[in-house]
């Protein structure tokens, strides 16, 4: 499936849109940033994390990356900072820290 180029969409005339308000590209909200909603960001301490993956399955924003069956980084362009991941973590490996403060390297 090819990328739908919407760079000029604000100038498109009525006849230039795909018919019937169809969105011809799937999952293109990946390009839409909701990270700006966040006031707190998740920080995971890998020394504590047991890789149980509960945070991943409970994330409302599909914002936790996985690789080789392990959680890796947070997708900070999508994470709204809800804190569900920190709340469900059984070993308190994730904490919510205010945006903008000095942090250890954020994952």
């Amino acid at each position: 499936m090819s990328k739908w180029d919407i760079s000029g969409i604000n100038e498109w005339k009525s006849g230039e849109f795909p018919l019937g308000a169809v969105i011809p590209e799937s999952g293109n909200s990946r390009d839409y940033v909701t990270g700006g909603w966040r006031s707190d960001r998740p920080y995971r301490n890998d020394d504590v994390c047991t890789q149980c993956l509960l945070c991943w399955i409970m994330c409302p924003d599909s914002a936790i990356n996985t690789e080789n069956e392990e959680v890796t980084t947070f997708k900070l362009n999508h994470c709204k900072g809800c804190g569900v991941c920190a709340n469900v973590c059984p070993v308190n490996a994730i904490m919510m820290v205010p945006e903008g403060c000095d942090l250890p390297e954020v994952k």
């Binding site: 999952g27 293109n28 909200s29 990946r30 390009d31 839409y32 940033v33 909701t34 909603w37 966040r38 149980c52 993956l53 509960l54 991943w56 399955i57 409970m58 994330c59 409302p60 924003d61 599909s62 914002a63 996985t66 069956e69 997708k75 362009n77 999508h78 994470c79 709204k80 900072g81 809800c82 804190g83 569900v84």
Partner: peptide, 25 residues
Amino acid sequence: LKELTHREDRLEGGHRLCAGCGASI
């Protein structure tokens, strides 16, 4: 859960449900 991580997440992020929404979970 480990096996589920191999499956494609069919709901992409960048949607505009509230923070902490139960529907998207």
